[in-house]
Amino acid sequence: MRGPERFLRRFGAGVAAAALGLSFVGADEARRTERRSGFDDMSRETQAMQRDDTANPGMLWVQEGEALWNRKEGTAARACAECHGDAAASMRGVAARHPAFDPATEQPIGLEGRINRCRQVHQGADAFAWESQDLLAVTVFVAHQSRGMPVAAEDPRLAPFRENGRRLFGERLGQLDLSCAQCHDDNAGKRLAGSVVPQGHPTGYPLYRLEWQGLGSLQRRLRNCMAGVRSEPHAYGSAALVELELFLMSRAGGMALEAPAVRP
């Protein structure tokens, strides 16, 4: 599946459509070449919940995030909106290119990390705790502005970090001795107990999981999977998790963002 994947990324949407046409050769072949969002494998009811902004519980956090966006914070008593203005214009496309290259540290930085950096440097406020409701709310508010846009986390300066993410994705870990790729590349589309194993494209984060009964980040999801194979999860904000995020975003390059998505 690696071959066609790389091919798709290099030659863009026209060739992608042609390749999808060819994939009717066989169901197995289709499963390997066609990239699917987790959305496509959900029940019709859950899909309807995500599509309708008055039924999608993630929109509650978007509202919360909008309020925080306009609230004065920190010793600078400055709101996000005072520098960035209307988020609908200034934040459009931002989530699609994160994790992005951070020139200050010459490292990749995720959207959550970027928001916290901005709080500390420009607002003189304390960083939000990882996975706190406030951080999720601002993150999903920003990510929501990019809904429908194609993922484009392709900064060439991030190549070594992306490669490290790819390596982590293929690395066996935990007592179950499983790598991410063994489920999400080799066995995607099959079932693990009652659930379809998704291809693992992070297009909807932060998203509302019915299982969590709340909003959660991609890092929470990754840590869940790590605990699932009985390994010690990497800490929130650690370099390894950001590199995995980076690799997953480039793997999902060109797919449409859905934040806030709903997943079972």
Binding site: D53, A55, M59, L60
Partner: peptide, 8 residues
Amino acid sequence: MARVLINV
């Protein structure tokens, strides 16, 4: 105040 979404 809790956030609400009402559709009427």
